[in-house]
């Protein structure tokens, strides 16, 4: 029930209202240290050595979005990634390795070889969150974190390739999967309001686009060329008659 209601709420946040993804594109993500659920100490860069990864962050003791979000990701992309890896890391300083393992198990990940679950080393958390544009705020009355829910793609050099917040259409999640597999995925910034002349307008409510005045501007040069030639012709004729 909770999952449904939260899902309904968050999926209402349209893509365009999210952070400007282009701002983060190709940003170098720091090589933070972490402990995997298996107990192995490692770094983020050693996880991307063999594959690009889909990375998401969570808190094991989150009573809000984390579990529904991780479930939603599991449903959208499955548990056995091929040609890429999925990494879920806890950012919560209170979480211990047992909490991370329990979360994985609760969500049906009994085999640790499918997704990689882990715990970030506390002193490295702020650097990673800043680089990812991941906002976290501790609410002392609820004793919980208010935080983003986000999935991103890191390539094998540690560059951020894609970043998506919230519960979106699974088709869009698959765009991230394809990106992680190295496929060519079409993406373009959603036009802002600061551009006067555009080729297209986007209806933000429906997501439909239509041609705009920028495209019409391309007709100006040829039309004015003919208009100019005809005007010159008329002027020359007029002068000759005079």
């Amino acid at each position: 029930m909770l999952a449904c209601s939260v899902f309904g709420l968050i999926s209402a946040i349209p893509l365009w209202a999210q952070l400007n993804e282009g701002h983060y594109y190709l940003r170098k993500i720091p090589d933070v240290r972490l402990v995997l659920a298996t107990g192995e100490q490692t770094t983020l860069y050693s996880l991307i050595r063999s594959h690009s990864i889909l990375l998401t962050l969570f808190s094991a003791r989150c009573g809000g979005l984390c579990s529904p979000y991780l479930l939603y990701l599991k449903q959208a992309i499955g548990t056995t990634p091929q040609g890429y890896a999925v990494v879920a890391l806890s950012f919560d300083p209170r979480d211990r390795l047992e909490d991370v393992r329990a979360t994985a198990q609760r969500l049906g990940f009994t085999d640790h070889s499918t997704w990689r679950w882990g715990l970030l080393l506390q002193e490295h958390v702020p650097r990673l969150l800043t680089a990812l544009g991941y906002s976290v705020h501790y609410d002392s009355t609820r004793r919980e974190f208010d935080h983003s829910i986000m999935l991103c793609v890191l390539d094998q050099r540690g560059n951020l390739l894609r970043r998506m917040e919230g519960f979106q259409d699974p088709v869009l999640v698959w765009d991230l999967v394809r990106e992680a597999r190295g496929e060519f995925v079409l993406s373009y910034p959603i036009p802002g309001t600061d551009v006067a002349l555009r080729c297209f307008e986007l209806d933000r409510e429906t997501g439909h686009w239509r041609l705009s005045w920028g495209m019409a501007l391309l007709l100006v040069p040829p039309i004015s060329s003919f208009a100019l030639a005809i005007t010159l012709q008329l002027l020359i004729g007029l002068r000759r008659r005079r």
Binding site: D194, L197, M215, L217
Partner: peptide, 27 residues
Amino acid sequence: PAFIAAVILLGLFLIQYASGATQDALL
């Protein structure tokens, strides 16, 4: 028309130079 297109292009470049307003990359 190619020169007229260049004039329009130049105008849009100058607008961005003077005001910082970005242009439509496709246009």
